[in-house]
Computed example of a mutant assay.
Amino acid sequence: MILEQAILDVIPGKQQAFEIAFKQAQVIISSMEGYIHHQLQKCIEKDNRYLLLVQWQTLEDHTLGFRESPEYQQWKALLHHFYEPFPEVEHFQLVQA
């Protein structure tokens, strides 16, 4: 299992619109091959910061299967205009439970 992590800094004042758009976008990601689970959390200290965690079966399920799919274009259209700066995405694997 792979854990994708992205810190999403949303343009101030656009948090509510982002959360509405994310509700639509989560339907897209959850339908993808290799998707396991996701969660979106809002930062307490910075009102416009979110943490997105997505579990994938393999790295390629995210980097190739999702990112190179037509569905990713829908995801991108719904969400990417909210970010400033654009988030860096990192992937993690479990070392020890």
Rank of each mutant, 00 (worst) to 15 (best):
P70Y: 06
V10E: 00
K23D: 12
N48W: 06
F86T: 08
S69F: 15
E88V: 14
E84K: 15
C43F: 02
T63S: 15
S30L: 00
K14E: 10
C43R: 05
Q93E: 11
L3Y: 12
Y35G: 03
A25G: 04
L78W: 01
Q74K: 14
Q16K: 11
E88Q: 13
E60Q: 14
A21R: 11
E68K: 11
I20V: 09
Q15R: 11
H62F: 10
D9V: 13
L64C: 06
Q15Y: 06
D9Q: 12
P85V: 04
E33C: 03
F22E: 01
E90Y: 07
Y72R: 07
R67S: 08
Q73I: 06
E60R: 12
E4A: 12
E84F: 11
L8S: 10
L64G: 00
H91V: 07
E4P: 05
V54A: 05
D61R: 06
L40W: 04
P85T: 03
F66D: 02
G34K: 10
F66Q: 07
L3E: 03
H80F: 15
E33F: 01
P85Q: 04
F92A: 04
Q57D: 13
H37E: 13
D9G: 01
Q24G: 00
F66H: 06
F82N: 02
Y35C: 08
L8A: 10
I29E: 02
L8Q: 11
Q74E: 09
F66I: 03
K14C: 03
K14P: 01
Y72A: 06
L59E: 15
Q55T: 04
Q24Y: 02
Q39S: 14
L64T: 10
M1H: 11
F82V: 04
V10P: 00
T58M: 03
A25C: 06
I36W: 00
L3Q: 10
Q57M: 09
I36A: 01
E60W: 06
F22K: 03
L53D: 00
Y50F: 15
D61K: 06
Q93R: 12
I20Y: 08
E33M: 04
A77G: 07
Q57C: 05
E68F: 06
E71V: 08
G65R: 13
D47A: 13
A25W: 01
F92H: 14
V95N: 08
